[in-house]
């Protein structure tokens, strides 16, 4: 194992232990690791943006391919710096307005398409037909009932009383099962990350330390 790999494993171990030290209580090691993480993360993003954004989308097209029209968004982007002075602070609204306008207008149709029509289409399924097993038919019925009742629960234009109240109540049960499943998946995701870190500390790290001596 090379020097840099050994050093890397040791550095990773120190930072891993520093973060885990928070389980005891908040302490300077944890705070230091947390602040270093923020700095490194932003620095990582900055370099990524420079190499994968600034150079290929602005610098190279303008100065190597003479695509001078790209100076227009650059000039609009410069307006962000208006916020550095109180008198020009309002200029920051222009690039934000461009983002908001284009984003709002363009998101309407795809939202309808992907989140409403497609989902609705997937919900219009046969409740019973030849070839479906009882279990499959029951699942299909539960999907339709689940979607319908959960929507009713979020529909506040009618009071949740009588039939509507009953449907909304059924919707809550479906929602609770859904939230329970999401919670279970989240827990398992975090646990698998924890297992990864524990394996690193108790398997990978000892190998490196033994290798040094």
């Amino acid at each position: 194992m090379g020097f840099w790999s050994v050093l890397g494993t040791l550095v990773a171990a120190v930072f891993t232990l520093a973060i885990f030290s928070f389980l005891y209580k908040d302490n300077p090691f944890y705070k230091a690791a947390e602040h270093i993480m923020i700095g490194v993360s932003v620095g990582y993003g900055l370099a990524q943006l420079y190499h994968l954004g600034f150079k290929p989308y602005l610098w190279n097209p303008v100065f190597k391919e003479a695509q001078y029209e790209l100076l227009i968004p650059a000039a609009i982007g410069m307006l962000y710096f208006g916020f550095l002075h109180p008198k020009t602070r309002w200029l920051i609204r222009i690039p934000i307005a461009l983002f908001m306008g284009i984003g709002s207008g363009f998101s309407i149709a795809p939202s309808m398409q992907a989140a409403i029509y497609t989902q609705l289409q997937a919900t219009i399924i046969p409740l019973w037909q030849h070839g479906l097993t009882f279990g499959e038919a029951l699942s299909n019925i539960l999907i339709v009932v689940g979607v319908f009742t959960a929507i009713i629960y979020f529909f506040f234009s009618w009071k949740h009383k009588g039939v509507i109240g009953g449907l909304a109540k059924a919707g809550i049960y479906f929602l609770m099962i859904g939230f329970g499943a999401s919670f279970g998946l989240t827990v398992m995701g975090r646990i698998s990350l924890l297992i990864g870190r524990v394996i690193f500390l108790f398997q990978d790290l000892p190998k490196v330390i033994i290798g040094i001596f």
Binding site: I116, Q119, I143, V147, I151
Partner: peptide, 17 residues
Amino acid sequence: LDVPNMATKRAITFGVA
């Protein structure tokens, strides 16, 4: 995950959209 969870996610997706 395939039945009640998907049904609720779908209802929430409608609302979000």
